[in-house]
Amino acid sequence: MPIAARPFDYPYDGHLDPAVTALLVIDLQMDFLSPDGYFARKGYDPAPLRAIIPNVNAVIAAARGAGCTVVHTRQGYRADRADMTPYEVWRRRRAGLDGTEVLLRSSPGYEIVPEIDVHPDDIIVDKTANGAFTYTDLEHVLRARGITHLLFTGCTTDVCVHTTLREAQDRNFQNLLIEDACASGDQYAHQAAIHMVTVEDGIFGVVATTKDVIAGLKAVRR
């Protein structure tokens, strides 16, 4: 039983196999969801990001129950900032983050928010770039496990989620974006990012709801 999605059901061949499917939970960290983190300091309201937590946890439970791999990502720089280019240092200063530990791997804000259900068997990938494939071992981990299909949740829809989804598409993974389990502080950007997945008859993948994804996963539960 495939997952009902648009512009076509997922997967395209109708064979949903949890053994080759991974759920990506992108960057649901304190620095993005807390009232004093990076996102809030940039003037965005983290409330829409926090609002997706129940849906994300529901999908995690369904994916885990079906036998899918669950991968969480975290974005931030090394504590010693050795991985920051001069441009990134300038952007950090411009954002008013000089002298803070925001988006540094040594800080409490780097951690995944405690409300998200992280299991000891889940995989955590630390990244510096917006895309989770850039300068990380994510692709190696997925290939080692035989993963070919990816489900996307997290924040923000228009930046880290979408960048990672596009990277995955160029690596020939089959992608599904769960539209109400990802969020942005900019609703227009969120909607535009969702629409972009479906253009040209699903050029970057397909879009589905939490409800339909859970229904599909329960139908193939191990």
Rank of each mutant, 00 (worst) to 15 (best):
M1I: 07
M1C: 08
P2K: 04
R6Q: 06
R6A: 05
P7T: 06
Y10D: 00
P11K: 00
Y12S: 14
H15L: 10
A19T: 09
V20T: 15
V20L: 09
T21A: 02
L23Q: 05
V25Q: 03
M30G: 14
L33C: 15
L33G: 05
P35N: 12
D36Q: 10
F39N: 05
G43R: 07
Y44E: 09
Y44T: 05
R50E: 12
A51L: 04
N55A: 14
V56I: 12
V56F: 06
A58I: 04
V59W: 04
I60D: 01
A62D: 03
R64D: 14
G65C: 07
G65T: 04
A66V: 01
T69Y: 06
V71P: 00
T73S: 15
R74F: 01
R74Q: 15
D80F: 06
D80Y: 06
R81G: 00
R81F: 00
T85M: 01
P86Q: 06
V89F: 00
R93Q: 15
D98W: 08
G99M: 07
E101Q: 13
E101L: 10
L104I: 08
R105Q: 13
E111I: 01
P114C: 02
E115I: 08
E115V: 07
H119Q: 09
P120R: 05
P120A: 06
V125C: 04
V125H: 03
K127Q: 07
T128R: 05
G131I: 08
F133N: 02
T134W: 06
Y135S: 10
Y135R: 11
T136G: 11
L138V: 04
L138H: 00
L138C: 07
L142D: 01
A144E: 13
A144L: 12
I147T: 11
L151C: 03
T157C: 11
T157G: 08
D158K: 03
D158M: 04
C160I: 04
C160Y: 02
V161I: 05
T163S: 13
T163N: 12
E167F: 07
A168E: 02
D170P: 06
F173T: 05
Q174D: 14
Q174P: 03
N175P: 11
I178L: 12
E179Q: 10
D180F: 13
A181I: 09
S184A: 10
G185W: 01
D186P: 08
Q187W: 06
Q187G: 11
Q187K: 12
H190A: 09
Q191E: 15
A192G: 07
H195R: 10
H195V: 10
T198P: 00
V199W: 07
V199Q: 10
D201V: 08
I203Q: 15
G205I: 02
K211Q: 15
A215C: 10
K218M: 09
K218R: 13
